[in-house]
Simulated scan of single mutants.
Amino acid sequence: MTLPATPLDTWLKLGVIQTSLDPGAAWVTSTKMSASEEERAIAEIRGYFAAFRQEQQPPDIILLPELAVPTGFEKTLRAMANGLESVVIAGLDYRNGVLPGHVHNEALLIVPKRWRGKAMGSHTVTRRIGKTYPAPQENNQLKLIGCHFQPDPSVWLFDGDEIGTFGVMVCYDFLDLERIAMYRGKVQHLFILALNKDATSFRHVAEAVSRMVFCNVVICNCGHFGGSLAVSPYRLSERREIYHHAGPKLATGQIIELPVATLDQHQRGRTPLKDKVPEYKSLPPGYDLSVVLLDQLAKLN
Rank of each mutant, 00 (worst) to 15 (best):
G146E: 03
C147S: 10
F149Q: 11
F149D: 04
F149V: 08
P151N: 02
D152M: 06
D152R: 01
D152K: 05
P153Y: 01
S154T: 10
S154R: 14
S154L: 10
S154A: 07
W156K: 10
D161T: 04
G164R: 02
G167K: 12
V168L: 00
V170E: 01
V170T: 07
C171A: 04
D173S: 07
D173Q: 05
D173H: 02
L175K: 11
L175R: 11
D176K: 01
D176E: 09
D176R: 07
D176S: 06
L177D: 11
R179L: 12
I180F: 01
I180P: 02
I180N: 13
A181P: 03
A181D: 12
M182V: 04
M182L: 11
Y183G: 01
R184S: 10
G185F: 00
G185S: 08
K186Y: 05
K186S: 08
V187Q: 03
V187D: 03
V187P: 02
Q188W: 03
H189T: 14
L190D: 07
A194E: 05
L195K: 06
N196S: 12
N196L: 07
K197H: 14
D198A: 04
T200Q: 06
S201H: 12
F202Y: 15
R203W: 03
H204Q: 13
V205C: 05
V205E: 09
V205S: 05
A206I: 08
E207V: 08
E207T: 09
V209L: 09
V209N: 10
R211K: 14
M212D: 13
F214Y: 15
C215F: 09
C215I: 01
N216R: 10
V217S: 10
V218L: 04
V218I: 10
I219V: 15
N221Y: 01
C222L: 15
G223F: 03
H224F: 11
H224V: 00
F225T: 07
F225R: 01
F225K: 09
F225D: 06
G226Q: 08
G227M: 07
G227K: 05
